[in-house]
Amino acid sequence: MPEFFHRKIERNAIGFVLAIVAVASIGGFVEIAPLFTIDETVEEAPDMRLYTPLELAGRNIYIREGCYACHSQMIRTLRDEVERYGPYSLAVESKYDHPMLWGSKRTGPDLARVGDKYSDAWQVAHLINPRDVVPGSVMPKYGWLMRNELRMGDLGEHLAAQSTVGVPYTQAMIDEASKDAYAQATPDSAGTAGLTERYGEATQVRAFDGDAARVTEMDALVAYLQILGRLTEVAYAKSEPAGE
């Protein structure tokens, strides 16, 4: 009997096309649409702060170099992962990540909470030649990050596009984006006061690459790495009773 029915629809190209679209659409719709509507999907984190322009530029370098191909940013709810990397990742922690960088492979360790784990100098040395500080590492060298000046002129456009997709950057943040990026990597410069006013007192202002005279791609990437896992404390607060 079903065969008869099928023999009919396989004679009708348009009908067949519509059937494929209908059958294939159900699964994705049921699984994805509720994620936007069910409130519990993403936790509340009132202390959540935004990426500064320099950190966002660093994030884009992380994407450009394909770091996500070997490093996840998603600590699973498994005992060994929590002990190795820190409290398991919460959905809210990547709420402003367009796109997310949860990753799918750990050729290198998870980086969700690598912020503040190593010094800037260690990060710089490691990126220039990983085997200088971690013999046995199979990570590539990223020497050009130190050689390339950071492109900062269009950071306002970046923040504006981020705000279009839902990240709450203010107009002042968008207008001052390039200056803020410069200020964050140049301590004692005139712009640092405005930067901390816009992004909070906790904003790290340092010559991340060790050279205050230039703003390099290394500055941006290290600034980004040092903020990973530190945008909100909500995950640490949750796990505190267990004795973090």
Binding site: E31, V42, S94, K95, Y96, D97, H98, M100, V165
Partner: peptide, 16 residues
């Protein structure tokens, strides 16, 4: 460009 989706919704869309 910046993806329209972020975080958990983006992860689900990406792996879908």
């Amino acid at each position: 460009s910046y993806s329209l989706f972020s975080g958990v919704q983006d992860a689900m869309t990406q792996w879908w």
